[in-house]
Design a protein around this nucleic acid. Structure first.
Lengths: 239, 239
DNA sequence: AAGTGGTCTAGACCACTCC
DNA sequence: GAGTGGTCTAGACCACTTC
């Protein structure tokens, strides 16, 4: 379990404790955690040690400090942080529409199982989803989620998913996405993808494969997106 | 110049000073900087303050600590850190060959001037370069460099550039690449690119535009690379 | 004025590396 | 054993926010 080893430095132990409390909702996103002095008193630590624990959580993106006001649990803005890397021809940065076309309980595909660290054919929730800008289809997505963690999604009608999935994962399933790895490649469109994207079969599409992880680095979502190459624009900063 | 503002926190001033000394070669890459206590004495600071300055430089990737041994100037491993994002069909991770085909002193193109922050038509060094894996052309690159900072490259024969440019920038011109921004897109190959990549004109190619910056965030290199889409594989970690 | 985080100090002891 | 960074303390004063 994530219970801290007593041989670890004290600021690490406090960091782990605070991380657990944040994850289990002791303080809601946007709320303030206790002042540094209070934490120091209750845990019998020097303020400097508390500060170091908090600093690491700030660096990890879990907390946010505001001078003179306090230290706050950060709202997960992954919709922005992940999707602002996409810039299709529409330069307004408008939020793309998300439309869930299909949802099924399926045994994991070999690739999805391997990526998510599940047993072969473990139960997963599969989503087929289309993303549109100005009503024009841009991305066709296949999404696999471990069925046990995301059971709540089976009760939701497809038209109730909304434009963003990650806030839904958080509010409905208690699963927060903290980081992701993406791999990009190019391939010819197969017939179903071509139909969804309204392009000729065989036209080049960009493939974005994403493995999204929680704060504990556990894989939570495996996603394979295919996008129109002519509208594709992807921006990255390197170290 | 980058001389620190006295109103800044002292650890920031020390950070700036150390960064400048690293950039100007006071300590060579791989060498140790003075111990924390020595820095505290010479700059009349508490050790804790020195530690904070060093911590930020470690976080920025300029320094590296080794417990019990000292704090060292990090060797720039940009060959790895930048190019390991590329994984073409050759999965061995073999270093691609780099071949400079042409080098000219040219007035900057409008796009290059804008990206590099130069005056229109400012003098630049332009390189045409081909990258190959197993003798097979993979990437065709156009590279623009500000002529003043990279003057030393005009004396070098094209076949003496070697496979990696960034170590050359550092050793010959004293210019270190610290970070980069890349934008990916897809377009049809024009005739010259198609010829270099040995593909049919009009075939889809991946375009990677890269602006590389020094430690002081100054733009140093603007690069436009076109790659065979069928061999393209690009991997990114998001936060 | 009271409460918060931001900076800085001065010193203690521990853990690792090298000789 | 000497020298390095790693952890931790206890306290001071500053800057910002809120009342």
């Amino acid at each position: 379990m994530p219970s801290s080893d007593a041989r670890l430095p004290r600021y690490q132990q406090l960091r782990d404790l605070l991380a657990t409390q944040i994850a289990t909702g002791t303080w809601k996103p946007g709320a303030a955690i206790p002042p540094e002095q209070a934490l120091a008193d209750t845990h019998d630590l020097a303020v400097g040690t508390v500060r170091k624990a908090i600093e690491t959580l700030v660096a990890e993106g879990l907390l946010e400090k505001r001078q003179g006001k306090g230290t706050f649990v950060r709202r997960a803005e992954f919709a922005n942080s992940l999707f602002r890397f996409f810039r299709f021809s529409d330069e307004t940065g408008a939020l793309p529409e998300g439309r869930v076309l299909n949802r099924k309980l399926l045994p994991a595909s070999p690739q999805a199982a391997a990526q998510l660290g599940l047993a072969p054919s473990a139960p997963t929730i599969w989503l087929s989803r289309l993303r549109l800008i100005n009503g024009e289809p841009i991305l066709a997505e296949d999404i696999w989620l471990p069925a046990d963690r995301f059971a709540a999604l089976t009760d939701l009608a497809p038209d109730q998913f909304g434009d963003l999935l990650y806030p839904l994962y958080e509010s409905l399933c208690g699963q927060s996405i903290a980081a992701a790895e993406e791999t990009l490649s190019v391939e010819p469109a197969d017939a179903p993808a071509a139909a969804l994207l309204q392009i000729a079969p065989g036209t080049s599409v960009v493939v974005i494969e994403r493995l999204a992880r929680g704060f504990d680095r556990q894989p939570l979502e495996w996603r394979r997106s295919r996008g129109r190459a002519d509208r594709f624009r992807y921006r990255v900063e390197i170290r």
